[in-house]
């Protein structure tokens, strides 16, 4: 404890830099990716291929006035964007990027990340309520019902993984999947059984859909549906208040991708038994993030009712069946 105190602090500084760069450049990737999918170029003017565009956007946001409109709940209005940012940043402290690249080894890190994620939901709720605006309030209500609905299949799927590994420690979960993709939890044909390997891809898809929904990304961005709710809970925010919400969204995406990588894709393990390392981890999370961007620019936004039906009628039954089957397979094989 005595000397270890500096380790989390130094890591925290590192994570803040990582988070800032990611939040800025995922925005750039998003715009570039959207451009390519629509056969445009995306930002081109500021810097080579628009590479300095995030910097310009950040400067612009920071130099604007932090406006607090009349009629808002002044304290909660200011707290909400901070709440959107903090959980994502804190979750990074327990994510093992490689064998010993981890700020703080926590025994229950899976649980910790989900506990923190639930604070993020609070941010949308408070932001929407405190704005004192009908659209923001609708957005808050939508986002809460959506998050509650999608948290259930997500947690049930996580329980499946925890049962397979027998641990809630992210590092142990990743360490249990080393040695090639046939050991990964997405297709654990070597580490568990063929029967298990057949149902795990379904779990992976459920978890992926849920994590997209939990981060309020399209096609699940009911909370900030521009065409109907302006920007939902972010409507009344300007300058860095809005900036923090955006950064929080991108950071949540990163944390979600890290979680999927660790839970299903073997963490830092190289496919085909290649030697593992942090680079494999980064490759995996950025592939996942690209998929999330790709999904966003492919599907249109659905209705909130259909969204909830997807969770309650399809994802929850499927994840429960998966849980039961996994329990049975662990006993049988």
């Amino acid at each position: 404890m005595d000397t270890n105190i500096w380790r989390p602090i130094l890591y925290l500084i590192g994570f803040m830099a990582f988070a800032g760069i990611n939040a800025a450049y995922l925005g750039w990737c998003e715009r570039k990716g959207a451009g390519r999918i629509q056969r445009r170029t995306g930002p081109m003017e500021v810097g080579f291929q628009g590479l300095l565009q995030p910097l310009a956007d950040g400067l612009k946001l920071m130099s604007k006035q932090l406006l607090v409109p009349d009629g808002v709940d002044s304290i909660l209005f200011r707290v909400a964007p901070i709440l959107a940012m903090i959980p994502a940043l804190t979750s990074m402290a327990v994510i093992p990027f490689a064998g010993n690249v981890q700020a703080r080894a926590v025994e229950l890190s899976v649980l910790l990340i989900f506990a923190l994620a639930s604070i993020g939901m609070m941010a949308v709720l408070l932001g929407g309520w405190a704005s004192g605006n009908k659209y923001s309030l609708i957005s808050a209500a939508r986002s809460v019902s959506q998050n509650l609905a999608y948290e259930i299949p997500m947690l049930v799927t996580v329980i499946t993984i925890v049962m397979l590994t027998g641990s809630m420690n992210l590092e142990e979960i990743a360490a249990a999947q080393q040695g090639g993709f046939w050991n990964w939890n997405i297709f654990p044909v070597a580490s568990h059984s063929l029967a298990q390997a057949i149902i795990m891809p379904v779990s992976f898809i459920i978890f992926f859909i849920c994590s997209v929904a939990e981060t309020n990304r399209a096609p699940f961005d009911m909370a900030e549906a521009e065409s109907e709710l302006i920007a939902g809970h972010m409507t009344e925010y300007g300058s860095m208040g809005f900036g923090l919400f955006m950064m929080g969204e991108y950071l949540n995406m990163v944390v979600g991708a890290c979680l999927i990588t660790i839970l299903f894709l073997g963490g830092w393990d190289g496919p085909l038994g290649l030697s593992g390392g942090i680079w494999w981890f980064l490759v995996k999370i950025y592939l996942l993030l690209f998929t999330v961007i790709w999904v966003r620019w492919t599907y249109p936004r659905t209705q909130i009712y259909k969204l909830l039906n997807l969770s309650w009628k399809i994802l929850i039954p499927f994840s429960l069946v998966n849980l039961l089957l996994t329990a049975a397979f662990i006993k049988v094989f």
């Binding site: 990716g33 999918i37 629509q38 056969r39 445009r40 170029t41 790709w294 492919t298």
Partner: peptide, 20 residues
């Protein structure tokens, strides 16, 4: 859903039509 993804993936690798 898969059909949709494959369409956008194909568009992604097609040349850009924007003129600078």
């Amino acid at each position: 859903l898969l059909v949709g993804l494959s369409i956008t993936a194909r568009e992604f690798f097609k040349p850009v039509v924007t003129e600078q």
